[in-house]
Design a protein around this nucleic acid. Structure first.
Length: 399
DNA sequence: TCTGGGGTCCTAGGACCC
DNA sequence: TCTGGGGTCCTAGGACCC
């Protein structure tokens, strides 16, 4: 193997929420059902079984429409903890293969198996992981194998369910170019219709140098180059050793089945949400510096308003006063359908090493900047731009 | 047809400082 | 009276992801 080449797996569960629901209720197997708000006609489907997909039902679809397609659709929901339990089992299993694991979300992860692949064939490793997840936990997954995280992710998408896909750099053209531009991870529902409108239909069209000027009408040169690099395997191939507990923000929101009108009612609902998310702040030992509220009116217009404090805090009254002020300054008695509260600029109390913090604070300003700069340069060399972004966010710790 | 909930990343403008 | 260049922080919102 060439020096510096990594072997990355992207492991992606197939209909994860449904698979977990089937563990708790095996009678659901091979039936058409969906995960969503129970006993309701509004809201959207978060995911649905392969049986339900046969009726044209898919995730993100409003329940009202799904019921039109299949009157008898069985919609269920489980407490989030139930899904988390299997997420943790999944991560524990991966740790047997490598310590370099990056969690993408509750149902997907990247793992660098370069070391292990010196003695075992990557496909054999992947097959074993897939089989163990299926036989031990009844969780079907697809695995993509490539040299960068992006290509591994694209590869895992190529075969579902239960796919095992090796995507060599030299095969990118053959395997990915015929696919639609909307399959590009990072090109979403706002951008792909614009690309299709100017005749950029496939990934091959997008990457064709003759089309570069056309694409630049829609994407900035930076975004364009980023995407091109990704398909040329010039994107991140190192796992970021950052975990869920390194959240940059936490939030909660709720859509109501009635309209919220008037400051009194809005403030009451915000207090319920604030208490809810505050519990999590305390439980995970975070301090926050920025408080955000979200208001969405019945026309679906959404605003966010935030305030940054001078100090990090986990004092409930201080936080709720900010929520209250933000509402007062920005709410004009329109009817609302959604309210939300979030905390940004988080630091974890466990991460603050007091001694180092005091030493750092004793430095003068230019010395501080030098130290931060060193940290950031090291970060970037080691882990790439994404880590640099994290470092920049976190350095506010040293204010 | 009518739109959930919880996140991250990126950009842009204004305030402020030197 | 007219006015630079660089940097950071804050705020707001868009796009995207699962």
């Amino acid at each position: 193997m060439k020096n510096g080449v990594h072997i990355i797996f992207h492991i992606d569960f197939n209909a994860f929420f449904c698979a977990v629901a089937e563990i708790y209720n095996p009678a659901l197997r091979n039936t058409a059902f969906a995960i969503g708000r129970e006993n309701s006609n509004y809201g959207v489907i978060s995911t649905c079984s392969y049986e339900a997909r046969k009726y044209g039902i898919h995730s993100g679809m409003p329940l009202a429409i799904a019921f039109k397609k299949l009157k008898t659709l069985n919609v269920i929901s489980l407490p989030y903890d139930y899904y988390l339990k299997y997420h943790y089992k999944f991560i524990e299993l991966l740790k047997e293969y490598s310590n370099l694991i990056e969690i993408g979300s509750i149902d997907e992860a990247y793992i660098d198996v370069t070391e292990l692949a010196k003695t075992r064939h990557p496909l054999v490793i992947a097959k074993e992981i897939q089989t163990r997840l299926l036989t031990n936990y009844h969780l079907p997954c697809s695995i993509g194998i490539a040299t960068t995280l992006f290509l591994a992710k694209m590869a895992s998408d190529l075969q579902k369910p239960l796919g095992l896909t090796v995507l060599r750099n030299k095969d990118v053209k053959k395997m990915l170019y015929p696919k639609s531009v909307k399959d590009i991870f990072g090109i979403g529902k706002k951008t792909y219709p614009k690309l299709e409108e100017i005749g950029i239909l496939t990934i091959g069209d997008f990457l064709n140098p003759d089309n570069k000027n056309k694409v630049l009408e829609i994407l900035s040169i930076e975004r364009y180059n980023e995407v091109v690099d990704k398909f040329n395997a010039h994107s991140r191939n190192t796992i970021l050793p950052l975990h869920k507990e390194d959240n940059l923000s936490i939030s909660t929101m709720s859509t109501y089945d009635r309209r919220i009108v008037g400051e009194e009612e809005a403030l009451y609902e915000l207090s319920v949400l604030t208490k809810d998310i505050y519990k999590r702040l305390k439980k995970e030992k975070y301090l926050t510096k920025t408080v955000t509220i979200t208001l969405r009116n019945i026309d679906f217009n959404t605003i966010t308003r935030s305030k940054t404090l001078t100090n990090y805090t986990d004092d409930y009254n201080e936080i709720f006063n900010v929520v209250s002020d933000l509402l007062e300054d920005n709410y004009h008695n329109e009817a609302l359908r959604l309210l939300g509260v979030g905390f940004n600029n988080l630091i974890n109390k466990n991460l603050i090493v007091e001694e180092e913090y005091n030493l750092f604070n004793a430095l003068n300003k230019s010395e501080k900047e030098e130290v931060i700069n060193d940290i950031m340069v090291n970060f970037k060399e080691k882990y790439g731009n994404k880590a640099l972004y994290y470092a920049r966010e976190k350095k506010t710790l040293f204010d």
